[in-house]
Amino acid sequence: MNRDVNLRLLRYFEAVATELNYRKAAERLYVSQPALSVAIRQLERQIGDRLFNRDTHSVTLTAIGRDWLPHVRSALREVDAAIDVVADLVGNAEVRVGYLTGTGADLLFELLDGVEEVLPEMSIVTTEFDFGDPSAGLASGESDIGLLRPPVDVPDLESVVVEEESWVACLPRSHRLADRAELRIEELLDEPIIVAPESAGRWRSYWMADDARGSRPAVVAAEAATYEAETTLVARGVGISFTTSSLERLYSRPGIHIVPIVDRPASYTALAWRAGRLSAPARQLLEFMLRRIPNSTGPQS
C-alpha cells in the first residue's frame, strides 16, 4: 500500500461517501465530476482496494470504504483543528466572510461597522458569491462566516436572521401582468422563468416556487448566476423571475417592472456559520457581528 495519501484525496473520499452521488459531491467540492472520479480512482490505487461500488444507478461504499470512513472523518477533524491552533499561535487572525450577491450592499458593512476599533489585529477578507453558491462559501469551506438567504445545502448550519423581505415578481415592462399592483403565485407558475444554476440545489428550487407547483413542472427559460444577468434576461423578455423586494432598490433598470407577490412566506437574510468549525478569531468576529443585529436572540438552527 502506498502511504503517501494527500489530504485533498481524503476530503474527496469523505464527500463522495457522504453524498453517495458523484455529481452532488463534485458540486459540494467545486470540482468537475470527471476530475472527482479520477481522484477517487487514484486514491483506490494508492490504498490497493476499491472504496465504492458504482453502476449507472447507484453508488455504495464497499466494506473497506465503510469501515475506513469514520477514521478519515476523525483525521480531517484533527487536521482542521490543528490548522486553527497554529493560526492562533502565529497570530494569524484572518477571518473570511462571504456574502451572497445582493445582500452585502445593504447589510454586510453595517454588521462590520466599527470592527477595526474593537478587533484591531484582525484581518477580514470579504468575498461576494453568486447564485452558483448560495451558501456564500460555507459549503466549500472558503468562508468562515456567511451572509446569505436560506435555504442552502449545508450540514450543521447555524444562523441568525438579519432581515426579512417579501417576494416579488420581476417582469418585462411589456408583460401582460406588469401593470398589476400585486400578484398571487398561482398566476405566475406557467410563466417561463429565469432560475439559478443547478449547483444552487435547494436554493434554486426555493426560488422556482417548487413547493407551490405540485406536479406542474417549471418552464425554465434560462439560468443566471447574478442579479445583473437575471434582470438583463427579464428585460429582454426571455422570462420572469422571483426574487426579494430589495431588487427594486438595488438593481432597478429600464425594461423591468417589480410587482409584489402577496401569498408567499417571507424571505430571510441570515448571518450563518457551520457549528464547530469556527476558529477563535472567527468566533470573536461572529460575536461582534451578532451584537450589531437588532433584537438578536442568538443562534437559530
Rank of each mutant, 00 (worst) to 15 (best):
D4P: 00
D4S: 01
N6A: 02
R8D: 09
V16G: 03
V16A: 07
E19P: 06
L20D: 04
A26I: 12
E27V: 09
R28M: 03
Y30P: 01
Y30Q: 13
A35M: 06
S37T: 10
R41M: 05
Q42E: 08
Q42D: 03
E44S: 01
G48C: 00
D49E: 12
R54M: 12
T60L: 03
R73K: 09
L76F: 00
L76Q: 01
R77Q: 13
E78W: 01
V79N: 07
D80K: 13
V86L: 15
G91R: 05
L100Q: 07
G102N: 11
T103G: 03
A105K: 15
L107D: 14
E110R: 15
E116N: 15
V118Y: 01
M122Y: 10
S123C: 13
F129G: 08
D130P: 03
D133V: 10
G137N: 08
L138H: 07
L138E: 02
V154I: 05
D156G: 01
S159V: 00
V160C: 14
V160Q: 15
V162H: 02
E165C: 07
E165M: 11
W167H: 09
C170L: 14
L171T: 01
R173C: 02
S174G: 04
A181S: 09
A181I: 00
E182G: 02
L188G: 08
D190Y: 14
E191F: 07
I193S: 12
I194R: 11
V195S: 14
A196N: 06
A196E: 13
P197H: 05
E198C: 03
S199W: 11
G201E: 15
Y206Q: 05
A209Q: 15
R216S: 12
A218N: 13
A218S: 15
V220W: 03
A222S: 10
R236H: 01
S241R: 06
L250P: 02
R253F: 09
G255M: 02
I256L: 03
I256A: 03
I258L: 14
I258N: 07
V259W: 07
V259Q: 11
V259C: 11
I261E: 07
V262C: 10
V262A: 15
A266D: 07
T269M: 09
L271S: 10
W273I: 02
W273F: 12
G276H: 00
G276L: 00
G276M: 02
R277W: 01
R277Q: 14
R277H: 13
L278N: 12
S279R: 01
A282D: 05
L286I: 13
E287P: 05
E287M: 13
E287V: 09
G298I: 15
G298A: 14
P299D: 04
Q300N: 10
